[in-house]
C-alpha cells in the first residue's frame, strides 16, 4: 500500500513536470509560459515531495523536505510575478485575443 502511494504521487508529480515543459514549448509568449511554469511546477514539486515524505516516514529529512516545499511554493509565485512585472514595464510584446490571430507567428 505504501509503495503504491509513493509510486502514484511520484508519477503524478513527473506528469505535471512533463506538462509544464510541454507548455513552455507550446505557448506563444512570456506570460502564457509563466502560467505553465508556475502552476504545474508547484503541484509537481508538491507531489514529488509528498511521495518522498511518505517514503522517508517521520524523520528530520521529511521536516526539511516540507520546509523546502513551502519555500518553493512562495518563491515560485514571487519570482514569476517579478518576471511578469519586469516584462510588462519593459514593453515586451504579448498576445491577446483568440488563438487564430497568431497561429503562424
Amino acid at each position: 500500500m505504501r509503495e503504491f502511494l509513493i509510486l502514484f504521487f511520484l508519477l503524478a508529480g513527473v506528469f505535471f513536470f512533463t506538462v509544464s515543459t510541454i507548455g513552455l514549448l507550446r505557448l506563444p509568449d512570456v506570460y502564457c509560459r509563466l502560467h505553465a511554469n508556475t502552476k504545474t511546477d508547484t503541484l509537481g514539486i508538491g507531489l514529488i515531495f509528498l511521495s518522498l515524505i511518505i517514503y522517508e516516514g517521520l524523520s528530520p529529512v521529511s521536516v526539511k523536505l516540507g520546509i523546502i516545499g513551502i519555500f518553493t511554493w512562495i518563491t515560485n509565485a514571487t519570482s514569476s510575478h517579478l518576471v511578469a512585472r519586469a516584462s510588462y514595464y519593459t514593453d515586451v510584446k504579448y498576445f491577446r485575443g483568440k488563438r487564430k490571430d497568431y497561429d503562424h507567428s
Partner: peptide, 9 residues
C-alpha cells in the same frame, strides 16, 4: 491539440 487560449491583461 487546439491550444484553446485567449490571453489578455
Amino acid at each position: 491539440p487546439k491550444l484553446p487560449i485567449s490571453p489578455n491583461i
